[in-house]
Design a protein around this nucleic acid. Structure first.
Lengths: 210, 210
DNA sequence: GTCTATATAGGGATAGAC
DNA sequence: GTCTATCCCTATATAGAC
């Protein structure tokens, strides 16, 4: 307890949690990470687009990783929001029955936050690696990890779990697959078509013995 | 014509097209790119796993990019194989009608070459960038680009194209989503479940006016 | 065909002035 | 809070010996 008694603030906590420029940095980083990827984006590039210098960014984020981590936290919030709905459910049957509603909520979130989900998809590997390096809070808060856990649950019949995974894949690929694919179709219209398709996929599940 | 008269071989063509060590380099690179990603894999790492040094690799590949490019060509071959089946089709209706069969073939290919498709998915961005830098032959040979082109075809009703995209997404995400998700289920069994799900998704398409 | 040694560039990160 | 200048490291790529 003798060391580190001088620091007036928490050592590893971000310095300006709600700062306006801090948010701008995160927004610009999100843009660049989506355009070029995390590893191909340098601090210098982020600073240039913001109109400042490298060193200025280091006032807000001690390491480049911390920018990535902070963006991941935005996704965590969405994940918690989605999975809080299933809090009480325990048995596999109930979990499986809740899936269609969960998927609907997921579609809404993707439509509302396309950049964030694109970021998650296109920087999947970089996000994996910071989880190994740092134990950034509970691992189970991540939306994807919770979905995977649910899809691993042995209480749900395999055939049904596969359908559930398929429905998620259909949503992600179609909604994030790039706007040019379907021309200028408005996002809402696309979402409803995907929603219908995903639900048909789930509905045609063959009933199996428990 | 005065210059470059001395070279006994083509200048930018790879030196040992069918060499055994060359293939080993590509296999090891494929492994590492799948584990850590293209940009996080150094030439030194590839050389170490191969049991040699950096400089040795530069005998076979002039640039790191060329390794990526060569692996991409393996995918091109698969794409050509798939799309050669549709060569004669012209009208949108016929193209849409051929989709289920095309999807079946696609599933077979993913099952037979999981590492290659994983490589494509997890290094998507790096592959995009070499397409910009170099015009590496016809762009339309890429499987993904051809699929996108088909899904953009305005002759096919939007609802149907969305279903087609959904079916592709279901296949990719479920088959490449990581083996841990469904435990130790054999790949073939999984493939048949996915195949059934994807076809149900396509079959329940609502008939619309042409 | 494979090595050692090196050139060169760029990235992350820090020190300290203002 | 933001700058300049700099350190240190690692990466790609090349030259040339063997």
């Amino acid at each position: 307890m003798a060391r580190a008694a001088k620091q007036p603030k928490q050592p590893d906590q971000p310095k300006q949690r709600g700062s306006a420029t801090r948010e701008r940095i995160l927004d610009i980083a999100l843009e660049l990470f989506n355009e070029k990827g995390y590893e191909n984006t340098s601090i210098r590039e982020i600073a240039e687009r913001l109109g400042t210098t490298k060193a200025a960014l280091y006032y807000y984020f001690a390491r480049k990783q911390d920018i990535l981590l902070e963006l991941h936290l935005r996704l965590h919030a969405l994940g918690r929001e989605t999975f809080d709905r299933l809090g009480g459910l325990e048995k596999g049957e109930e979990l499986a029955a809740a899936w269609p509603e969960l998927l609907d909520h997921f579609i809404d979130q993707v439509i509302d936050n396309p950049e964030l989900f694109l970021f998650h998809q296109r920087n999947h590997r970089a996000l994996e690696q910071i989880q190994d390096d740092e134990r950034h809070q509970a691992e189970n808060e991540d939306l994807e990890q919770q979905m995977r856990a649910l899809l691993s649950s042995p209480e749900i019949p395999l055939a049904q779990r596969v359908r559930m995974a398929c429905s998620a894949g259909a949503v992600i690929v179609t909604l994030l697959g790039g706007g040019e694919m379907f021309g200028n179709v408005p996002a809402n219209e696309l979402a409803e078509l995907v929603r219908a398709a995903a639900h048909d996929l789930l509905a045609s599940t063959v009933v199996t013995d428990p």
